[in-house]
């Protein structure tokens, strides 16, 4: 499926189930998401963490409703909140696990017409991700060597990371410009990403089906 449409669909679904309270729809969505995730064949560790970690907020929200709500007997709503978390996570992971970030950015540029400077600037920055993770470790170790521990509430940690980011962004932007990247200039594409009619049918069909389910179950 076209990456842009896939993510738009995932967000629309998440938005809609945030404002509706049907646990059956949540379960159906979670199952569909899980099937897509399983088809992408993630590792066991990834799969187990996808199932386990959402359990914590899901249980917390459900227990809080049971213990703290204004009216008693809100079991129904507790189940809705519990299943909603799983619908969010499985639908979201169904989108992220099946889409390399490169394909998403290319699709956003060509199909959603995001300006090229944003598409390639974001991609350039995103490719520095491993360097950022290393930099954060370096900053903390360097501080430890002076006997200082930097926590996530230490301004120094953020300050030093931003200084490094300032330097890298200048360098990377210069490198891209010297490789011929011109902001706002029209580009040709080696790989073209299209939205096929099948993509539209899946996206619009899913949304119509979701409305049908939500409305149908509401009436029932």
């Amino acid at each position: 499926m076209n990456p842009t449409l896939k993510f738009v669909l995932a967000v629309l679904i998440a938005l809609e189930i945030s404002f509706t309270s049907s646990w059956t729809v949540n379960v159906i969505l979670a199952v569909i998401g899980l099937v897509i995730i399983l088809a992408a064949r993630p590792g066991w560790k990834r799969l187990l963490s996808l199932i386990f970690w959402p359990l914590i907020p899901a249980v917390a929200l459900a227990v809080a409703i049971l213990m703290q709500s204004r009216s008693t007997g809100n079991t129904q709503f507790a189940i809705v909140l519990f299943t909603r978390i799983y619908a969010y996570v499985f639908i979201g992971s169904a989108a992220t696990l099946t889409t390399p970030i490169y394909e998403l950015v290319m699709s956003l540029e060509q199909n959603a017409h995001v300006p090229t400077k944003f598409a390639y600037g974001f991609l350039g920055g995103f490719n520095l991700m491993p360097k950022i993770v290393t930099e954060v470790k370096t900053i903390r170790v360097a501080a430890l060597m002076r006997g200082e521990t930097l926590h996530f509430w230490s301004p120094q940690l953020y300050f030093k990371a931003i200084i490094a980011a300032l330097r890298w962004s200048e360098n990377l932007a210069e490198a891209m410009t010297s490789h011929g990247f011109v902001e706002d200039a029209p580009r040709t594409h080696r790989v073209t990403v299209r939205i096929r009619s099948r993509d539209w049918i899946i996206a619009i069909g899913s949304l119509i089906l979701l409305q049908g389910l939500l409305f149908g179950l509401h009436l029932a």
Partner: peptide
Amino acid sequence: HLRDIILLTLIAIFFGV
């Protein structure tokens, strides 16, 4: 500009981490 966008992305990634 390109460098702003890259810097914003880097800051965002840092916070993502």
